[in-house]
Design a protein around this nucleic acid. Structure first.
Lengths: 413, 413
DNA sequence: AGTAAATTTCTCGACTGTCGAGAAAAAAGT
DNA sequence: ACTTTTTTCTCGACAGTCGAGAAATTTACT
């Protein structure tokens, strides 16, 4: 209860509502907009006229009339209203995508990262170079890029686009805003990768279940462990967060983790950790920087054929995940859990431990086992999450500026 | 982004803003209202006139003018606009308080609960009886009671006033709405006790730090362990939640807890648990229902004089709390932690374990030790939290109804 | 071809809300 | 009695939403 309300704010919110309907359902006619937003037809008229004048949306070309009556004219985002660059940083590569304001992919390329850590300096140089390149390839002026949305695994600051800790660069922080400010007027945002997965899942679930949707967690298994949580917010929106799950304490004083602490969940359930258990290496051995997935596949094959030690590796990983999840559920509420990431290929070996680790806890005894789902294709979710997250911010920013834009245009004309 | 906005909503929000300013700062004049809410003087005039007409606020009696100029007239809540009954359920007693709409305590009494658990049936009968009594003593018609705000330790449903699990009644649920509906038209709300502590602390902190305030946790130590978290919400308001911290898993398959599960934090840090460790009773012994605090005091004295086994009891409790807190911080952000409840009398013995349990984790290594504060007087915080929480809901409800009330009055007059 | 029916979009007037500026009110000083 | 000072109230302008009905535009039917 801190901010006062005003009629201008009402317009802002309702304009945002119109834009978000367009995002969710694609091109819509006046009538449909009115239906989806529950705004009166008259209001929709005014808002669409404003947005059209501000060059944010446009009427689509007339299309074959489908029935009796005046034909509908569809509104959609003006594609060249602005652009979004999506940067997905993973352990072995960085993927760059250029997307127009309507959400269409225009260009994409990936750059491999050299395995031997080259440090922050060269990485940033590569990043700047690649960004310049993706704009140049589509002959785009830098000021037409509204936002650069970056994701990485690791620990991300909640308010600034600063990477606090990552499996790749460790404690060497990267302040992306500082690094890109000189060349890009765009807004820079940085999100934890699994946060974006959760965001994408939240939208999917909302589409399916409607207002029944309450909350959901995404667990990403791989070299490191990520968790994203999405919940319905006070005002109908989605609140999404990425707790530092991988480095939540599993066992006090337990196995040494890549982060330098001991007993993190990742130190039991990350790929390197499972390998460590499988080979019976002492738990305080400094973990390998990178583990070829083929190595783990071998262990999995053996485990599936009854190899004791190898089964144990997956079981212990599952237990760490299950216990951790039970703690998450204790601190929030019971919610469906979606498991994704490269590690899902071992789901058959992990599930027993996960279930057992969950079962012991008070929450699960009280409220029952949470629903567990598996989704294999993580990269698609990450990209969807980027679009989701980025455009909802972009649209809100745009709407906040529209009033003044219209004013200026009015004076000019 | 689901709900549309409208001019009526604007008025609602701004009316709520006025009422909340009155709550925070006590009686205020027109000018002060305008200052605090940032609303224009004209708008304040309209809103206060509406609220006055609806019998929600009133002008205070003229008071001695303090200086030159037209004297201020203070607005304040109409005391008899409605009443709130606060019910604080603790392990040994139930306290009933009657509060008027201005937040003034009118009547209060406590009823001891018999130690041998008498079950839900008799408890509910006593509750109904006491509620009838507190209204009768002030000759209050039941329909003048706007809300009955109940608190208990234990697990509370997030949407309905249903006690899911409590240290007192175990899994025997109580649906307070169902139980009181026939006699009381009032809204019934139920909150976890430590949630209300957090709510009170949040308000205090907001008053001190203003917009610097981000989040805060309240940890209540006693027979059971409670945790409340308060965070600044999207729209400036406070979001408060009570995770099931006491029964979060501390050690898989660990000591038997009152709740029936194993290894809960409470099974190490609750009073009965510390006693169990001190007397070296096996960890799977069914815990005592109730532990006289004098017993623990003896152990504390011995521990302070170097009694090994007794020191261990407090140390283990501290470790459980510290580890648990580190997990909470992993899942949220770093925030100050206020420790309260009867258990703070052993703070000197617990702090070492707490610190150690916190220190091991990734979060604390990364972001540093969270600020720890001790507040001894928990009951005051609980009551403050009740008022806070209840009146913010009441005010919002009232404001939602005011429009129609004014309309009806307009027709009648 | 002409007209009716159907459907969508646009427009007008009524209503509600906020705001700035200045009028009105009410006390203290001169 | 008049001025100064401070607070409260009031008026007209402006922004926003809404319902109802007019206008537009196509298909169907005679």
């Amino acid at each position: 209860m801190l901010a006062k309300s005003s009629t201008e704010l009402v317009r802002q919110k309702n304009s945002a509502l119109v834009l978000s309907a367009l995002r969710r359902h694609g091109p819509l006619a006046h009538t449909e907009l009115s239906d989806f937003t529950k705004l009166s037809s008259a209001t929709v008229s005014v808002i669409t006229a404003d947005l059209e004048r501000a060059q944010i949306i446009e009427k689509a070309e007339q299309q074959a009339a489908s029935g009796r009556g005046r034909p509908r004219v569809l509104f959609s985002q003006r594609r060249n209203c602005g652009y979004l660059i999506v940067v997905v940083i993973s352990s072995d590569a960085v993927q760059y995508s250029l997307v127009d304001y309507a959400g269409r992919l225009i260009d994409r390329f990936s750059e491999e990262r050299s395995q031997e850590a080259s440090g922050v300096g060269p990485f940033v140089a590569d990043l700047r170079d690649a960004l310049r390149r993706i704009a140049a390839r589509s002959q785009l002026a830098h000021d037409k890029v509204l936002m650069i949305s970056i994701s990485s695994k690791g620990l991300v600051d909640t308010s600034e686009p600063v990477l606090r800790w990552s499996p790749i660069f460790g404690r060497d922080e990267i302040d992306f805003a500082a690094v890109l400010r000189d060349e890009w007027p765009a807004k820079i945002i940085l999100g934890n990768e699994t946060l974006l997965v959760a965001s994408a899942l939240g939208r999917q679930e909302e589409n399916n279940k409607g207002s029944d949707f309450r909350a959901m967690a995404a667990l990403s298994l791989g070299h490191s462990i990520g968790l994203g949580i999405v919940r319905r917010g006070e005002e109908g929106g989605h609140q999404v967060s990425a707790p530092n799950f991988g480095h939540m304490m599993h066992v006090p004083g337990g196995g040494l983790c890549r982060c330098g602490a001991r007993g993190c969940i990742e130190a039991y359930a990350g790929f390197y950790a499972m390998l460590r258990t499988a080979f019976d290496v002492p738990l305080d051995t400094i973990p390998a920087k990178f583990v070829p997935i083929a190595e783990l596949d071998k262990i999995a094959v053996s485990a599936r054929h009854g190899g004791r030690r190898n089964m144990l590796a997956f079981r212990q990983a599952g237990l760490a995940l299950g216990n951790g999840l039970s703690r998450v559920l204790s601190l929030h509420e019971r919610m469906p859990i979606v498991i994704t990431g490269p590690g899902v290929r071992y789901y058959d070996l992990l599930i027993e431990g996960i279930t057992e680790g969950l079962a012991e806890s008070h929450v699960v005894r009280m409220e029952g086992m949470p629903e567990l789902r598996v989704i294999v294709d993580e990269p698609t979710l990450v990209f969807e999450g980027h679009l989701n997250h980025a455009f909802s911010i972009i649209d809100n920013d745009i709407v906040r500026r529209t009033a003044s834009v219209v004013e200026l245009r009015g004076q000019a004309g």
